[in-house]
């Protein structure tokens, strides 16, 4: 019974923290921190799934939580770290269109816009305090913040993290439609395929000569401004 009372609060806190982590992904310049934040964001989704298990007793969500731990909290971050080690990149200092402060301001506007739009459209069906409403607003906001990260980041590897954050937004939303667990599971698989593909494309130059590899890194904006590998 106590767990049933605590779970909604627990879920709400986690959802807010998910948004905060989305903001951090927009502003962080250290690639290590980017990966850690993504890992933390994914872990928050695990906590939300567990909260929903308590609240709605859909045990299939346990499987989703387990898959998320294996793939997003552990697998994908490990894979990205491996790539980082191979290409010796520590920081992402280049941005297109918007600098982090501007991106953060824009993301606040996005959240407000999504809230107002969804409140108007969904008001007949859901109370503003319902978990589905909150999940949809925060999920879609996170997707848009991830998209912002994909647009403003210039390094391919940071764009990948932006994409994965978008996917976390979809997962955050999908968790509240509890009849769809297999759906979410498939997304994770597709996600992994895309990541493996991107990884292999980015590391394609490793077999080439050093000059050719450098030029390929330049192409993907993986070189620092000074010309050396950052």
């Amino acid at each position: 019974m106590i767990l049933n009372d605590v779970a909604p609060v627990w879920i709400r806190i986690c959802l807010i923290l998910v948004l905060v982590s989305g903001g951090f992904l927009l502003s962080s310049r250290s690639l290590k921190n980017l990966v850690r934040t993504y890992q933390f964001q994914s872990f928050l989704l695990v906590l939300i799934a567990l909260g929903l298990v308590v609240l709605e007793e859909h045990t299939i969500l346990l499987l989703v939580a387990a898959l998320t731990v294996v793939s997003k909290v552990w697998g994908i971050p490990a894979c990205i770290r491996l790539i980082q080690e191979r290409i010796h990149i520590q920081q992402d200092l280049k941005f297109s269109y918007l600098r982090p402060p501007g991106a953060l301001m824009l993301s606040i506007l996005i959240i407000l816009l999504v809230y107002i739009t969804f409140a108007q459209i969904l008001e007949k069906l859901y109370a503003a305090s319902s978990l589905f409403f909150l999940g949809s607003v925060i999920g879609v906001s996170l997707v848009l913040m991830g998209l912002l990260a994909v647009c403003i980041r210039r390094m391919a590897i940071s764009k990948v993290i932006g994409y994965l954050s978008m996917e976390n937004g979809v997962l955050a939303f999908g968790l509240f439609v509890t009849e769809l667990p297999f759906f979410i599971e498939f997304v994770i698989v597709i996600d992994l395929i895309i990541l493996v593909l991107l990884t292999s494309i980015m590391t394609v130059g490793i077999d080439s000569s050093i000059e050719e590899y450098k030029s390929r890194l330049e192409e993907f904006h993986l070189l620092s401004e000074e010309g050396g590998i950052a």
Partner: peptide, 14 residues
């Protein structure tokens, strides 16, 4: 990235 939006659309439809 665009297809992720479609995914949200499918969840809404469901």
């Amino acid at each position: 990235t665009s297809m992720l939006f479609s995914f949200i659309g499918i969840i809404f439809l469901f």
